[in-house]
């Protein structure tokens, strides 16, 4: 599996656009900045929704109103983050695909997406009787707390990708190397 991912990343790396994006100081930095600044829209809205469910923000605004109205700008923000995130991966495919933090981030993104799907199912099932209460019912609060935890960890992993602590060319411990996807005898990046 790791060899397959490595071969795919090497193939992406042969693209002139990938190299061009990586070597363009302004383009790469603009994309990275957009990726980070879109946090304010996506996570900003998500935090308001989750904190409202926990009774920690905007307690006088009905909870479902917050969830429905801020959902659209939040999804717009996440769309920007996905597009710029894919471009960032495309610019540095081999090192990124072999980053332990990137791999943990992908797992956490899947977990956050599943949690969001469950949260919206519970939101629909809960009806609107509790809407004006300062705190949402327990299942929704658990979903909101998990969402905050997942996204805090996702941001942390995203930040840690920039550090080379466990890079394949830094000779990581065998287990770390296997989790990061280092391939024996691979070309060093």
């Amino acid at each position: 599996m790791n060899a397959l991912i490595y071969d795919f990343a090497r193939w992406l790396d042969t693209h002139a656009w990938s190299t061009g994006l990586h070597e363009s100081y302004y383009m790469y930095n603009w994309i990275e900045s957009t990726h980070v600044l879109a946090l304010m829209l996506s996570l900003g809205m998500l935090f308001l929704i989750d904190l409202r469910m926990l009774g920690l923000a905007l307690p006088q605004v009905p909870a479902t109103t917050i969830a429905q109205r801020l959902n659209v700008p939040m999804l717009a923000g996440f769309s920007v983050m996905i597009i710029t995130g894919l471009l960032l991966f495309y610019a540095i495919p081999v090192r990124t695909s072999q980053s332990l933090w990137f791999r943990i981030k992908v797992v956490l993104l899947v977990a956050a997406a599943l949690n969001a799907w469950l949260f919206h199912r519970r939101l629909r099932a809960a009806g609107g009787g509790w809407d004006a209460a300062p705190r949402a019912p327990l299942p929704l609060r658990v979903g909101a707390a998990l969402s905050l935890l997942f996204w805090a960890l996702i941001v942390m992993c995203g930040r840690f990708i920039a550090y080379d602590w466990f890079d394949c060319n830094a000779d990581p411990a065998p287990l770390i190397g296997a989790l990061a996807g280092c391939v024996p005898g691979q070309e060093q990046f």
């Binding site: 304010m40 829209l41 996570l43 900003g44 801020l70 700008p73 942390m156 930040r159 602590w165």
Partner: peptide
């Protein structure tokens, strides 16, 4: 690692502040 963790807090706080400003 501590510096990177504080950077994470900085980013999360920026998202919180940005969310409040945008809303």
């Amino acid at each position: 690692a501590v510096f990177a963790l504080v950077q994470t807090v900085h980013l999360l706080a920026m998202a919180l502040l940005g969310g409040a400003v945008l809303a």
